[in-house]
């Protein structure tokens, strides 16, 4: 009787050790590799945008294509913090604007994409001094997340295992 019980426990243990654990581990590595790809694609996108002052439909589609090639679905969130400067206001400085005097207001993904689609050129322009940031998170359940949820479950909406983020100050005023 006890032998049978031990055998059953052993079979379960063996199954977990021999199949599920390696699978979990391999799928986690696969997520890591996806994250690597997503991170570099995101950084490239942000660097390109901040160096040219333009967010173009072409580059955005590139980012979407590269990230989705990893086999997951992603939520790409863009945010442009527009420097709301009053360059007419003068003070006793060499530059017309004073650090700390400026306010930023934010424009988000849907507004940016709408502006791109409405413009003739397919370009959203930013100016020098704006801040552009992009964060990418997966929205589907990856294999590693599915397996992990067998053992323990995490509740809530913000459950992701692949995430990438890039931010920077825009260095050129985009030409329209």
């Amino acid at each position: 009787m006890s032998d049978t019980l031990i055998t059953i426990v052993a079979i379960f243990l063996a199954a977990i050790l021999m199949f599920i654990f390696p699978l979990l581990s391999v799928s986690e590595r696969s997520d890591d590799i996806s994250e690597l790809a997503v991170q570099s694609a995101t950084t490239e996108f942000v660097d390109n945008a901040r160096a040219t002052g333009k967010i173009t439909m072409e580059n955005y589609s590139d980012l979407v294509a590269t990230t989705h090639a990893t086999g997951n679905t992603y939520d790409i969130e863009m945010e442009v913090k527009v420097l709301d400067e009053n360059v007419g206001k003068k003070s006793a400085w060499t530059q017309g604007v004073v650090i700390g005097e400026n306010i930023y207001y934010s424009v988000y993904t849907s507004q940016i994409l709408e502006a791109i689609q409405n413009s003739d050129t397919g370009v959203y322009t930013m100016k020098e001094g704006d801040i552009f940031s992009v964060s990418v998170k997966n929205t589907n359940k990856t294999l590693s997340q599915t397996i992990r949820s067998v053992f323990y479950s995490i509740s809530g909406n913000d459950v992701y295992s692949i995430a990438a983020q890039a931010t920077g100050v825009v260095t050129a005023t985009g030409s329209y």
Binding site: L83, E85, N86, V87
Partner: peptide, 20 residues
Amino acid sequence: YLYNHKNLACYKCINDGNYE
């Protein structure tokens, strides 16, 4: 101090830059 350009920037075309 002498400022020769006291006009303000147009919100639409200078600050935002995205307009038709």
